[in-house]
Design a protein around this nucleic acid. Structure first.
Length: 291
DNA sequence: CTAGGATCCTGTCAGC
DNA sequence: TGCTGACAGGATCCTA
């Protein structure tokens, strides 16, 4: 579930908690699900969190002992930080990733896969479907990681021309699955792919080879715009979320124009938004203004 | 090389 | 109240 804006929100939020305020030393690591933690927990004991980084949808936590954690949340991962004061009360918390009640639930719980206990608090990695992972690597070798190495540029660095060239390389496929490919353009997931295509007025099932250079430029711009909007909205709502007022904020409705809006009216042309399937994924678009 | 489908896993929801 | 199948904000692996 978490796409680039959610991971970036986590990077900032955890950075504030674990770097600026400080998490202190890592005292203990509990692994409840072995496939969720790749590496030896002993490698990170005693280290402190130095810096929060991100490549595409992967969060990267640099530690003080020349090791780094590559964290990918995939569909249902969450990271929840709970800082405790001397009397054991939660003095600060942050939650991000797949939105559900785990954010305000008791932890650890059934979906907790890894728990990293630090001097100042505990970081919980929850993941319903177990697709995500935390991986220990040498900081120097983060760039050599198979996943990280293949990542394309993010839309802020990519030109329309570059995207156009890449679309031509997959000209037989529908454009939507192509822009979901992280080696083509990095950061988009199922929501922002739909939203970016809507922005550019391109039908998700159009052949990638039939997207013009001008449209590719619109598509890159669209990707940028929708993720920036989400970053503003998601960032603030996620903070509100953990204020534990009980409300389950759906920040999607703050910016999504087509995602999960099937049956509703298109705000641009008044047409009816449709949900269908493209490349095996649920896909939302307006048939009237996306051609 | 590309394209398309199956696969990893748990949980929820609609329909009978 | 079960049961069943579809589906889920990701990425990889396999086959043709």
């Amino acid at each position: 579930m978490p796409e680039l804006p959610e991971v970036e929100t986590i990077r900032r939020g955890l950075g504030e908690c674990m770097v600026s305020r400080g998490a202190g030393k890592i005292l203990r690591v509990k692994v409840y699900e072995t496939k969720s933690f790749i590496g030896d927990t002993q490698e990170i004991i005693g280290a402190e969190v130095k810096e929060m980084d991100r490549r595409g949808k992967a969060l990267i936590i640099h530690l003080t002992n020349k090791k780094s954690l590559i964290i990918h949340l995939r569909m249902t991962g969450q990271l929840i930080w709970r800082e405790k004061n001397a009397s054991g009360d939660i003095s600060k918390s942050f939650a991000g990733g797949h939105p559900n009640d785990n954010f305000i639930d008791k932890l650890p719980n059934k979906q907790t896969r890894v728990q990293i206990e630090c001097e100042a608090g505990t970081l919980y990695f929850n993941d319903q479907r177990k697709f995500g992972f935390i991986k220990v690597v040498e900081t120097e070798k983060v760039g050599e990681d198979a996943f990280i190495k293949k990542l394309a540029k993010e839309p802020w660095k990519m030109t329309g021309g570059e995207l156009y060239e890449k679309l031509q390389r997959h000209k037989g496929s529908a454009v939507k699955p192509v822009i979901l490919d992280q080696t083509v353009i990095c950061g988009l997931g199922n929501i922002y792919a739909d939203e970016a295509l809507y922005y550019a007025g391109i039908s998700p099932m159009r052949k990638a080879g039939e997207v013009s250079l001008a449209e590719a430029e619109e598509l890159v711009t669209g990707a940028r715009v929708v993720m920036e909007r989400s970053l503003e909205a998601g960032g603030s709502t996620l903070r509100n979320y953990v204020k534990a007022d009980g409300t389950k904020g759906d920040y999607l409705t703050l910016f999504a124009k087509v995602f999960n809006r099937q049956g509703e009216k298109c705000e641009r042309c008044g047409g009816k938004i449709v949900k269908t399937k493209v490349g095996g994924r649920g896909t939302h678009y307006c048939p009237d203004c996306q051609k």
